[in-house]
Simulated assay, not measured.
Amino acid sequence: MDAAWIALALSLKVAGCATALNLVLGTAAGFALARLRFPGRELVDALLTLPLVLPPTVLGYYLLVLLGKRGWLGGWLYQHFGIQLIFTWQGAVLAASLVAFPLVLKSARAAFEGVEPQLEQAARVLGLGEWAVFFRVTLPLAWRGVLAGVLLAFARALGEFGATLMVAGSIPGRTQTLSVAIYEAVQAGQDDTANLLVLITSVTCVAALLLAGRLAPARNAAT
């Protein structure tokens, strides 16, 4: 029972960190793709969306090649800073972030493309700078789409299995998330434990969606 709650806490930490990372990076990338015009823009969008269609094990392999001690990034981090991301919860965060990133990107881009450019231009005419225009005009008008992508990314990160298992492994109390713990319980024939973990995962996801549903109307009332 204690192991189940430990796995839940670790899953929430990994999913929360991955969602926060994707909130910043996915929103920025979505805004850039929605507003900037440059050659190869759709190719960039396709490459950034690729994790949505690639098998998680393929993404996990790419991360192993990149972040392992022999990888160019992983080797550099280990040699200069002594940082090792493989078989750590931070590695699980990177794996979950990569898998869930396109969900924020696509939702944010669609939301920003739905904002009328004339409203942004009017704000500039009134003397607002670009950062003020974004935070006071663009983002408040696009927040519904961004929030939808963030919620989907959180749920996806919470349930991530393949890439996380390859990058972080299954170390109880350190890298064993709920999804990995369910797999281990099924493999060991521990049906009671698997049922408990599945129930915890389902209840957690439903609670997150219900909370989001309660917060959204409150925000609408405030705006």
Rank of each mutant, 00 (worst) to 15 (best):
A18G: 11
G159R: 14
F161M: 08
I6E: 02
L119C: 01
Q79L: 13
F31R: 15
Q187P: 00
I200P: 01
H80Y: 07
G74L: 13
L197R: 08
S11M: 08
G173P: 01
L73N: 04
A18N: 08
Y183L: 11
G16E: 07
L199P: 01
G26E: 06
V104G: 01
G145H: 08
L151M: 13
A29S: 05
A95I: 00
P56K: 14
L10C: 01
G16Q: 10
A92D: 08
A155D: 05
G213N: 12
A100C: 10
L152H: 04
V24M: 09
A20S: 07
S179V: 14
L151T: 11
C205V: 15
Q176T: 05
A157Y: 12
T19R: 12
V14R: 09
L165T: 04
G114V: 09
A185Y: 07
G26Q: 11
K69C: 02
P51I: 12
A153E: 06
V14K: 11
V186C: 01
K13Y: 03
T177F: 04
L199W: 12
Q79M: 09
I86N: 06
R109K: 14
L50V: 05
T27Q: 04
S97P: 07
G213E: 10
V65L: 15
G40P: 04
L209T: 11
T193K: 06
M166F: 04
G129W: 03
E120T: 13
R214I: 09
L50Q: 01
S170D: 05
A216V: 14
A221W: 13
L73T: 04
Q84G: 09
L105G: 01
G127V: 03
Y78P: 01
P140Y: 06
A142D: 00
P39R: 15
G16R: 14
G82Y: 13
L64I: 13
S202Q: 06
I6C: 00
L47K: 03
G159I: 15
N220H: 07
A221T: 12
F135H: 03
G60E: 10
L54T: 07
W131C: 02
Q176H: 01
K69Q: 12
A218R: 15
E120H: 08
L199H: 04
G213K: 13
V203Y: 03
G169Q: 10
R41Y: 04
T88Q: 08
V146P: 02
L66K: 10
L209H: 05
L54K: 09
V198N: 06
L23M: 14
A123C: 06
F87V: 12
N22Y: 09
T193S: 05
I171M: 07
